[in-house]
């Protein structure tokens, strides 16, 4: 409702406001202390040379210009972007598919929902180690399965199964595959979004004898589009981070040269392994800029859809 009723001229309840502030205080302290300050410090360090061991020295834009010329950084940036472009839509699609499949009450649906959520609940390192085993090119269950029915260690189609962690393309695909199973949060949001859609709209479509595809294309998809878009943007931002553990634990940034070195791993390696903290901070700055860009997209989407659905 945007009807402009004259706002009641009541003095704001200062006590209530103070209480709100008090209740927010722990969160604000945490936010400022744990997120904002480190972020600001990192921003500042991006313009310094700092090795964690000696005091930082101001170098201006040197780090950023060096990043532009750094082939490893460029590869890492490209890897991150490609990951986001491929994995994020896939993750959202998988989550959407499962949400549409599992939004109704039916026998087994509860179990299926839990199963969908489970990988997201596994600690990341353990999840990575699990996949290290799954991806084992000779003894891993995935390739054992692919070899079923084939002879001489080949698949049924007579091809060698993917050498998951030693071939750059397979390794990238592997990391994406890993990430597909941790879309639990997206799934939950989409499940809730789907269940919030009005039932009578679907009954209307049934009366018009709309096919499942028509219903999906003309109703479900457009109605869920705002949520999907927001989730995709959120996932894209998160993908800058959740590529870290798989790359760190499973592929160690390889196979060479840097096939799965994503921005997050690049930052970790340069910062903590090579002690180029200032340089790593500059790379972090680039990550932040990407995040801000994504947030702007998100903000525009919200505004656009709010105009669409204003009641």
């Amino acid at each position: 409702m945007t009807a402009s009723r004259p706002a009641p001229r009541i003095r704001p309840d200062t006590r209530a406001r103070r209480q709100h502030l008090l209740m927010l205080a722990p969160y604000l302290v945490g936010l400022v202390g744990l997120m904002l300050l480190p972020a600001l410090v990192t921003l500042a360090l991006a313009f310094t040379e700092y090795d964690l061991l000696r005091p930082p020295t101001w170098v201006g834009l040197d780090n950023l210009t060096a990043l532009v010329d750094d082939p490893i950084f460029r590869v890492a940036l490209l890897n991150s972007l490609v990951f986001a472009v491929v994995a994020v839509p896939l993750r959202v699609l998988v989550a959407l598919g499962l949400a549409l499949l599992l939004h109704r009450r039916a026998p087994g649906v509860g179990t299926a929902r839990t199963a969908t959520l489970l990988p997201t609940a596994v600690p990341e390192i353990a999840y990575g180690l699990l996949w290290l085993w799954l991806f084992n090119p000779l003894y891993g269950p995935i390739n054992q399965l692919l070899r079923l029915g084939g002879e001489h260690g080949l698949t049924v189609l007579g091809r060698t199964p993917p050498p998951w962690l030693t071939d750059p393309t397979s390794a990238r695909a592997g990391i994406i595959l890993m990430s597909l199973f941790t879309m639990g949060e997206t799934f939950v949001v989409l499940l809730a979004a789907r269940r919030a859609l009005p039932r009578d709209v679907y009954e209307m479509a049934a009366l018009e004898d709309a096919t499942g595809w028509d219903v999906f294309r003309r109703i479900t998809l457009p109605l869920m589009a705002p949520v999907l878009a927001l989730l995709a943007v959120r996932d894209a931002i998160a993908s800058l981070h959740f590529t870290f553990v798989p790359a760190f634990v499973v592929t160690d940034g390889g196979p060479p040269p840097y096939a799965t070195t994503y921005l997050s791993l690049f930052v970790y390696q340069t910062g903590f392994e090579y002690l180029r903290y200032g340089y790593a901070a500059a790379a972090t700055l680039v990550m932040m800029l990407l995040t801000v860009a994504a947030l702007l997209v998100q903000w525009r989407l919200i505004r656009r859809y709010r105009r669409f659905y204003q009641v």
Binding site: D200, E203, M204, L207, A210, I219, F308, Y309
Partner: peptide, 20 residues
């Protein structure tokens, strides 16, 4: 199935498609 009965319905909520 509903689509083959050749009936039209006006719902109490109208069930209009908000995005169309």
């Amino acid at each position: 199935r509903p689509g083959l009965r050749n009936v039209s319905m006006v719902f109490q909520s109208y069930a209009l498609f908000p995005h169309l």
